[in-house]
Amino acid sequence: MLMHALVAGGADIIELGIPFSDPMADGPVIQRSSEVALNKGMSLSKVLNAVSEFRKSNSYTPIVLMGYANPVEAMGYKAFAERAAAVGVDGVLSVDLPPEEAAEFVAILKAKAIAPIFLVSPTTPASRLKVIGEMAEGYVYYVSLKGVTGSANLDTDAVKLRLAALRQHISVPIGVGFGIRDEASAKAIANFADAVVIGSRMIEEIEANPADPATGLQTFTGRIRDAVHQARS
């Protein structure tokens, strides 16, 4: 299974996507992967089953489910949180539930000891950073650029400046994602972020090796891990 390949390659946390028919904040790669998954009958329920399967041989790698609100709503916040806790989910990131709309869901997640993960963007004002800092658990996901997932306009210096400002309001670790594609960008970001988050580039790796996606994924993850370790040493 691909999740084990990520762990073997050195991933510390796995963000597992819940496919949605209308992924408004995602670029073409994740849109395509959602379409493929849905066409093959993937659903939130089956994502939870996959976590359960993974947990049979790995009890230690944190798993964060990531997706849009509607599939979770359709299952029901409570029913979802119960099943997620039961199969061993550690955190949930709902892309289109900003703090303003998330109060009920966050309370339900926290009651099940699941961390609500929030996004922070280059445009988030200080007043909202404070609110997010108070609600967030686990880590905060800093969206490194104005754009959708998989974009190419990453500005490392801007991210560095911004992270310093974020840390005044946010005490949990900060991961940085959107636009990290290779060892160089991972290393640059790892110089000041607590984690680098890679999504679209991982999916491309899977697409490029249809016969044996696990090997390619593990190799790529290993290269990123080495780059991050270099930045830290």
Partner: peptide, 19 residues
């Protein structure tokens, strides 16, 4: 906050909130 009873609201990714 843009609510019509239980409906409406602002269900978007963080990047659009400021806009």
């Amino acid at each position: 906050k843009g609510h019509f009873g239980a409906y409406g609201g602002v269900y978007v990714a963080e990047t659009l909130m400021a806009a």
